[in-house]
Amino acid sequence: MEKFTTHTGVGVPLRRSNVDTDQIIPAVYLKRVTRTGFEDALFAAWRGDPSFVLNQDAYRAGSVLVAGPDFGTGSSREHAVWALKDYGFRVVLSSRFADIFRGNSGKQGLVTGIVSPEDIEILWKILETKPGTEVTVDLEAKTATADDVTVPFQIDDYTRWRLLEGLDDIGLTLQHADDISAFEAEREAWRPKTLPAKHLPSVEVVPARPAGSQA
């Protein structure tokens, strides 16, 4: 993972609460088997609306998203993070994030900073009155600066450390492979195993047919 220390880019005010991951990327775009190429899918339904913020020239090149509370709720799809990153976003600021989305972001190097609702309002006003204003996000200092205003943000220390160092989670965990093996040696016999597979007798499943052709 690429290290993240500071980032400066155009701030995008998204004055909406409860932006769920179905809005960030609708399910029809989840069928791809790659990790990249999701930029067109970002906010797909809203991008059809000419007044949507990302359709305005000043915000089109945005890379710091300033959103309302409860950003990233709903589905666990990591595609939401990939779509934001593929579009060019490096940071999302909100007063509250859904847990799974925040976790997924941390794995993918997208910074999710928790900013107080009052400071979000201040950032929105700056970005709306001066479209195209750049925001500087300093992960070391945990601050976001737009114009002459600097607001603090929160991010958990472990995620921040991993982002600053650009460390991969699996590699970190495998440093403890001995602990994992020791734990496995003590697991109780009743805990289930999927293999060898057990199940009820196989029965033929009759395919349903379109209405009208159904018997």
Partner: peptide, 20 residues
Amino acid sequence: FGIGTSEVEHVLATQTLPLA
């Protein structure tokens, strides 16, 4: 609980998850 794809890979590789 639900997890993202990076965590799916993590569990496939290690059968564990780092969690707060």
